[in-house]
Design a protein around this nucleic acid. Sequence first.
RNA 1: UGAGGCGUCGCCAAGCGGUAAGGCACCGGGUUUUGGUCUCGGCAUCCCAAGGUUCGAAUCCUUGCGCCUCAGCCA
Length: 567
Amino acid sequence: MAATENTNEEVKKSNFIKEIINKDNEENIYGGAVATRFPPEPNGYLHIGHAKSICLNFGLAKEYNGTCNLRFDDTNPSKEEDEYVESIQEDVKWLGFDWGDRKFFASDYFEKLYDIAVDMIKKGKAYVCDLTADEIREYRGTLKAPGKNSPYRDRTVEENLDLFERMKAGEFKDGERTLRLKIDMTSGYIVMRDPVIYRIQHTEHHRTGNKWCIYPMYDFTHCLSDSFEKITHSICTLEFENNRPLYDWVVNESGVGHKPKQIEFARLNLTYTVMSKRKLLELVKNSYVDGWDDPRMPTICGLRRRGYTPESIRDFADRIGIAKSDNMVDIAMLEHCIREDLNRRAQRIMAVLDPVKVIVTNYPEGQVEYVDAVNNPEDESMGKRQMPFTRELWIEKSDFMEEPMKKFHRLSPGMEVRFKHAYYITCTDVVKGPDGEITEIHCTYDPATRGGWSDDGRKVKGTIHWVSVAEAVEARVNVYEHLFTRENPDDLKPGEDYKDLLNPDSLSVIEKCYIEPFVRDAKPGERFQFDRNGYFCVDKYSDHSWITFNRIVSLKDSWKKVAEKGN
RNA sequence: UGAGGCGUCGCCAAGCGGUAAGGCACCGGGUUUUGGUCUCGGCAUCCCAAGGUUCGAAUCCUUGCGCCUCAGCCA
């Protein structure tokens, strides 16, 4: 290999899971195969934490030339809905992953699972238990005290078979009986204390309808489904570490043959947001946000509507890595990823969000002149556009100071600045309304500086953006901030509720701002950089008569820091 | 005197007995028709603590300490 190994191939980071896979491959545990799966329960929308898992599982499959299945873990009909299976597929696709023809449902295995359960009964490894939920809890013992055997533990195989059959037939009411595994009521692993594997639930299932009234539980279903699908590495989050002995027990004792390896990694936590499905659901149901795809939500659809790109989310997943220690990733990392992506790709335009009027007194009234504007200084191939320049212009209030503070090199009386792509402009006068607020800023322009440049070596420190009053497009802009005010909204003081920490300023709507005419035909989903301000995306529900933009993320603003210090 | 995990820079995270990668954030300098980008430089004599083994330890061994998870007929 040549010394100049500078290919554009990405250098993929390693992690402990890859090390396990590499070792398994060396020892030929799975014949070199790598088969993963992404197993969501269709009871909610996917969020950025799921994106981490999706990138991991599909990424591993791609890297090792293996496969990744999409499997819906739909064993609890009371929580699951088709709406969610649709949204999950849409989100996985949008992130850029393809499960091909490997879409499965745990519910497709109900028959097989039932047969295995019957077989477990026959082998004396499972029994029907008549204890109530409360009694089961009592018998289970506590973290420190061992449990005790159920009085129904020693029923005969025949009786168990008969009872289980009748459970299936619908002879009993919800909760009346369960099927339990006969393992060890004294185990330090609570999950090994004769776990319930079937419960009675007379509920219609989103796929199997009313065919079943008994449903298998996670610990029984998941590992067997993995085995059926010949999954090699079953990757899940840390809280399932305690379930691993049971996972292995079921796979071993059921005699299914193929034995996947469960590996646990740490789930993602992000600052200033929450990730639990329960909380996200509550925010939606109680209208704290405007639906699952509210641009403030950490859901995939929320990020999509906000304007995040799939590339930026995948990049984020790569950067945060995979490990086993609990973590809280700074949301600034995510913001960095989208800025980096959009800096490269986004069309620049000028938009004035908080306007004040400038009148160029020596510019002819009624004249419209078009100046060239670079579309993206990072990518010359994106070309140029033309911007109308007129006598009356909008600029940002924050770009003018009547009495400039130190280091302020924007517009102020007597100060010459560059109106980007247009002319050098000098402020000559300020007009105020009766209450003292500035209503007009009078300026002159230097015709010799067209394009915003002069050859005489004149130094112009400031460059500001502007929009022609006569030619401006009016638009609405949604400015988003963090959803919560506390870095970790799960870290509550006594008496607090996480909803108390919702940021009242997480959304500010600017009903009317002025944008250059280039955006007139912008389509929902289109992204732009508003010069010197940030990245914005046309909202999915935007209407052509009044365009709505969502702020994806601001540009970094080092001036803000200086200004705040100066005050 | 239940069990299973985890502890490396403010936040992620490499490191696998040979003398602390990288990214984000932050702080400085340069370039700049975005106070953006880019670029240059700074940012852990130290790896939860204390002992021990070793020529040599973040890495091995002890003993502590801290944090997370498990007592749903949820997943």
